[in-house]
């Protein structure tokens, strides 16, 4: 599977990373190199093999339904680049 400039641009968009137009060909080239390396996986016979999700099978731990957290507005906002009146402020989102 080969990646062209347009696909590279699409992927950058999905990942929300700005890549300048003139940098796209080099990026596509890198992708192709890495994907070429990954192609080896096609050699493996995976018929009937289940995809591994968790390497350490155990019963998922559950929590009791109690309020044990929150009530810390200042701490939540303390690292914010732009916090106003208790909210996180961000550039306008158009719906």
């Amino acid at each position: 599977m080969s990646i062209d400039k347009a696909t590279a641009a699409k992927v950058a968009k999905l990942a929300r990373i700005k890549v300048e137009d003139d940098a796209l060909p080099a990026l596509a080239e890198e992708f192709n190199m890495i994907l070429g390396f990954i192609e080896q996986l096609n050699e493996v016979d995976v018929e009937g093999v289940k995809p591994m999700t968790s390497v350490t099978p155990q019963r998922l731990k559950r929590r009791v339904d109690q309020i044990t957290d929150g009530d810390q507005q200042a701490l939540v906002l303390s690292n914010a680049p732009d916090a106003r009146e208790g909210f996180f402020a961000v550039p306008k989102v158009v719906e």
């Binding site: 339904d65 109690q66 957290d69 701490l75 939540v76």
Partner: peptide
């Protein structure tokens, strides 16, 4: 009482960002 994956409250109408766990 609490959220699905955190222990913060689900109560409606509180100050913004006050029912927030890290």
């Amino acid at each position: 009482n609490a959220k699905l994956f955190s222990g913060a409250s689900t109560e409606f109408g509180n100050e913004p960002n006050s029912n927030v766990a890290f």
